[in-house]
């Protein structure tokens, strides 16, 4: 047990938590945007898979990481657009259309993988990028400033999104559309356009989240690479009370416990591995049950909008 409390182990746990958090963070922040405007997108996992595949395929062929990232963002945006058409214009039941989108993304990414690659290959992804000066800070430098650029991007996204939602007119409109679309409409806000924008932006971020797996964390693509990660991301949005900073805390907590259980096993603390894997789930339930804050659930979440309805 002593081994757990050495500096090296603690730094290791925290630094791997930061890495694990990255894809969740992209997906969950994107989902926060969509949900704040009143659209529940359950298809995040499918979008991530498509993003992961596109990024990987482009990098595999062009060896250009930036193009790969753009491809992931573009494909994510298109998947978001599909979701928006179904759930905003066609007013489909959001829970089901999200599952449909998930299945579509899961199947299509595997199919394209089958046709275009055929077998698991690897690429050189984003390298670790030590930020000068900051990475020299003892401990903190190792934990926070010794990662690939996509990791930094994910964490930068949190204050940016918080600023967008709370301090700009756009943010005000998004929140208005999510809370009371009728009133927003009466005030001249284009409800449908706002929802299209947030769902597409959310799709784009989910696509980048997939790229964070396939060309940064893992540097490979495999069928069903995300293994349900996107669903956890959606759950973490609820956990974070629809606030970017809350979502960040939720993501960090979940990844922290996940990396803690890996470390517990490596150090050889003798608990059955199944029980160790359970830890993140149990802890999330406990934390979410502590009634210290109420989230600001968008009142119109999952409700399609039609004028005069």
């Amino acid at each position: 047990m002593d081994e757990l409390f050495t500096t090296a182990t603690i730094v290791g746990i925290l630094s791997s938590a930061v890495r694990l958090a990255t894809p969740y963070l992209y997906a969950a922040i994107g989902e926060t945007l969509a949900q704040r405007s009143g659209v529940l997108n359950l298809g995040v996992d499918g979008i991530m898979l498509m993003g992961a595949f596109s990024a990987f395929y482009v990098v595999y062929n062009t060896e250009n990481l930036l193009t790969g990232l753009l491809a992931a963002a573009g494909v994510g945006l298109l998947m978001g657009l599909l979701m928006a058409v179904a759930s905003v214009t066609m007013k489909a039941e959001q829970g089901i259309s999200g599952i449909g989108l998930y299945l579509f993304g899961l199947g299509l990414s595997s199919l394209l993988f089958r046709i275009m690659l055929g077998t698991v290959e690897s690429v050189d992804g984003f390298p670790r990028l030590n930020i000068p000066l900051l990475s020299d800070i003892p401990l903190l430098g190792e934990i926070f400033f010794n990662h690939s650029i996509l990791v930094y991007g994910a964490f930068l996204l949190v204050p940016l999104t918080a600023f967008l939602l709370n301090r700009t007119t756009w943010g005000l409109n998004i929140r208005a559309v999510g809370n009371n679309p009728q009133a927003a409409d009466a005030l001249g806000v284009n409800v449908q356009a706002i929802r299209y924008a947030t769902v597409c932006a959310g799709g784009m971020l989910a696509g980048i989240g997939g790229a964070a797996l396939s060309i940064s964390a893992l540097n490979i693509f495999q069928e069903n690479l995300t293994n349900g990660l996107g669903f956890i991301a959606v759950a973490l949005v609820y956990f974070g009370g629809w606030r970017p900073v809350g979502v960040l805390l939720g993501v960090l907590l979940f990844s922290f416990v996940n990396s803690l259980q890996l470390w517990l096993q490596v150090i050889g603390i003798d608990i059955p591995s199944d029980i160790a894997v359970m830890l993140p789930y149990i802890l999330t339930i406990i934390v979410v049950s502590i009634p210290f804050r109420r989230g600001s659930e968008p009142a119109a979440l999952t409700r399609p909008f039609s004028r005069g309805a």
């Binding site: 893992l218 890996l262 490596v266």
Partner: peptide
């Protein structure tokens, strides 16, 4: 030894490798 608790959790297996290497 680390077990991920799943056959297909590629991301967790990758992080397990990171942890192994750091350890």
């Amino acid at each position: 030894k680390t077990y991920t608790g799943s056959f297909g959790d590629t991301a967790l297996a990758a992080e397990a490798a990171n942890v192994q290497i750091e350890a």
